[in-house]
């Protein structure tokens, strides 16, 4: 009885905050869905319902599909790269006997900077005329002349991906490192006595302890990276030749440049549906992975 009355009172206390959060969460989603069925212009208050016309236009647009597949490549490459780099960095840091706190702080720096600072710094570093990296590579005769990392169609996507991996890996590193700290040492010692090699110790002891964290991070980062706009836009502007135009950049151009709020909303609704399906599948896979007993 006592517990129930406490619970009820507590609910009343958190209700206003919950209402605000739900409203802030739901309003943009619901308004996007609503406007996706209209010809709403950003600057005009008068609009009409156009049914599924926006969706048909978007789905018949080559630009949309190009941006969609670029988004898939961008997200998969970024998240997997961040996982590998973050995991390796965490494993390395866990073995560092001295100054591990200092190294951890240094490695987390990319995550601490705003995207705009990172983007402009990299644009500066990679500029093919006065940029530090092309001039350095050229001076050491590693390259024949200054390489234009952000203009070469063979390089630009990989370079942007590398920057995003550098930017996002610290989040994986910190979380995996925290999970690694919870692995009982005696399990490793027992495995070593039993003759398990490094790979076996990693696969049968380390991975089962960190996979829950990794699974969650993979899902969250997939959603964030898929939706991310500013870093790529500020570095490449979606170019050259549309090679780095992702769906958020395409939606931005439609919504802000053309003021076609209805059309931009249709793009974001399609993006939302895709992410919901992808997240549901990912949750299912991750939970199955987590349930798999470690052998």
């Amino acid at each position: 009885m006592q517990l129930r009355s406490h619970t009820t009172a507590g609910l009343w206390f958190v209700l206003p905050a919950m209402l605000v959060v739900v409203a802030l969460l739901l309003y943009p989603v619901l308004s996007s869905i609503f406007f996706s069925f209209t010809n709403r212009n950003l600057l005009k208050t008068v609009y009409a319902f156009v049914g599924a016309q926006n969706f048909l236009s978007v789905l018949n647009s080559r630009d949309f599909w190009n941006a969609f597949f670029t988004s898939i490549k961008w997200t998969a490459g970024s998240v997997l790269g961040q996982l590998v780099v973050g995991l390796l960095a965490a494993l390395a840091l866990e073995r560092v006997p001295r100054f591990s706190g200092l190294y951890r702080t240094l490695l987390v720096i990319p995550w601490a900077f705003p995207a705009i600072v990172i983007a402009f710094s990299w644009r500066w570093i990679l500029n093919d005329v006065y940029g530090f990296l092309p001039n350095l590579l050229s001076a050491f005769r590693i390259t024949n002349g200054n390489v234009s990392f952000l203009a070469d169609p063979q390089l630009v996507f990989a370079v942007a991906l590398a920057i995003n991996i550098w930017f996002g890996a610290p989040l994986f590193m910190i979380n995996i490192l925290a999970a690694l700290k919870t692995v009982p040492r005696d399990q490793y010692e027992a495995a070593m006595i039993d003759g398990a090699n490094l790979g076996q110790r990693f696969w049968y002891i380390t991975v089962p302890h960190v996979r829950r964290v990794i699974g969650l991070l993979l899902i969250l980062r997939t959603i964030w990276v898929f939706n991310n706009f500013e870093l790529l836009f500020l570095i490449t502007g979606g170019g050259p030749a549309g090679l780095t135009t992702t769906l958020p950049i395409h939606a931005y151009r439609t919504g802000w440049g053309l003021r076609q709020l209805g059309m931009a909303s249709a793009i974001t609704v399609l993006l939302l549906i895709f992410l919901l399906v992808a997240a549901a599948l990912a949750f299912k896979l991750v939970s199955r992975w987590e349930r798999t007993p470690a052998r």
Binding site: N127, V129, L150, D152, P240
Partner: peptide
């Protein structure tokens, strides 16, 4: 410069 294809 080759990079000017991306310049603002």
């Amino acid at each position: 410069p080759q990079g000017s294809i991306n310049y603002n």
